[in-house]
């Protein structure tokens, strides 16, 4: 299958890219890895008249370790998220999400920004990013604005990103020493699959009494967008971690989700798996702290 005809731009700066977006509006589609866009263009699902390649935007494919934060350029390859030492050391749940995404061929092309902007309910990176409290930096000609990732998704394929905006970076606070996080996914086969369900959890313990000081739980493929499981979080907040507590949190998480039935999995199965996954990612997070 061939691609339909389109205009092609390769801006060299974010400013230049934003100008193109402003000028051509909805008829432009930004191109990062293209693992989603190219397929959909071939299928005729999206028909942009102009494609804006982001590959010459040098500032967008770096991972920077700053004093209190980590800044990941939107064009960072998923493969790089696996290999990068900063990610491995400080954001292991994100690394786990990256490992679960697609195949080696896909990971060598796909970007973190693309995985976020395509806004698929079952995407592998958002749950980990959500539990690390990620913020996304959205650029337009007016300059950047920062949005919490949990406020970014609106529905399947829908986000708060305006037509004249470009997602340029993801920012995360560096997790403190007494914290840990985990990511897990479940699919029909072991790899290269769209998940039936996925999820992540982040725990930070109070160093004095060992209670849960900060907790975030996120789930994918159980709602129109990746979600934070707030009832699960409430069940955990301020408590001492234990097997029983994690089981309770898992059960609470079932009330956070509104899954559908499709050929990959039934709603009841997804709901039941929410408990198992939440429990297991909490265990992973706790193990990391204890390490």
């Amino acid at each position: 299958m061939l691609l339909p005809k389109f205009e092609y731009d390769e801006p060299r700066s974010i400013e230049e890219a934003c100008e193109t977006l402003r000028t051509f509006g909805e008829t432009v589609k930004p191109l990062a890895g293209g693992t989603d866009l190219m397929v959909n263009m071939k299928k005729g699902v999206v028909r942009p008249s102009r494609v804006l390649s982001l590959k010459k935007l040098k500032t967008c494919n770096r991972i920077e370790k700053l004093d209190a934060t980590i800044r990941i350029g939107a064009c960072t390859l998923v493969a790089e998220l696996i290999q990068n030492q900063v990610i491995a050391d400080t954001l292991p749940a994100l690394q786990a999400g990256a490992k679960a995404l697609g195949s080696p061929l896909i990971r060598n092309l796909a970007t973190i920004g693309g995985n976020i902007c395509s806004a698929r309910p079952a995407a592998d990176l958002p749950p980990a990013l959500l539990v690390y409290g990620a913020r996304v930096v959205l650029h337009s000609q007016q300059g950047p604005r920062t949005v919490l990732l949990k406020d970014f998704f609106k529905g399947p394929g829908q986000t708060v990103l305006r037509g004249d905006e470009l997602l340029t970076a993801i920012e995360l606070d560096r997790p403190p020493a007494n914290s840990g996080a985990g990511y897990l996914n479940l699919g029909i086969r072991k790899v290269q699959d769209i998940d039936i369900i996925n999820g992540a959890a982040y725990l930070a313990l109070n160093p004095r009494d060992g209670t849960i000081e900060k907790v975030r739980v996120a789930l994918g493929a159980v709602a129109p967008t990746p979600i934070r499981a707030s009832l699960a979080e409430q069940a955990l907040q301020g408590q001492k971690p234990s097997q029983d507590l994690f089981v309770q949190a898992g059960q609470a998480a079932q009330q956070d989700c509104t899954p559908i039935t499709d050929f990959r999995g039934g709603a009841a199965y997804r709901k039941a798996m929410t408990s198992v996954l939440v429990r297991r990612v909490l265990e992973t997070a706790l193990k990391q702290i204890e390490k």
Binding site: S103, R189, K190, V191, Q192, D193, I194, D262, F263
Partner: peptide
């Protein structure tokens, strides 16, 4: 529903 290799699952090496 399952008319492509994305949606129709055959085992991979990992399976």
């Amino acid at each position: 529903k399952t008319e492509s290799l994305k949606d129709y699952h055959i085992p991979t090496c990992s399976d």
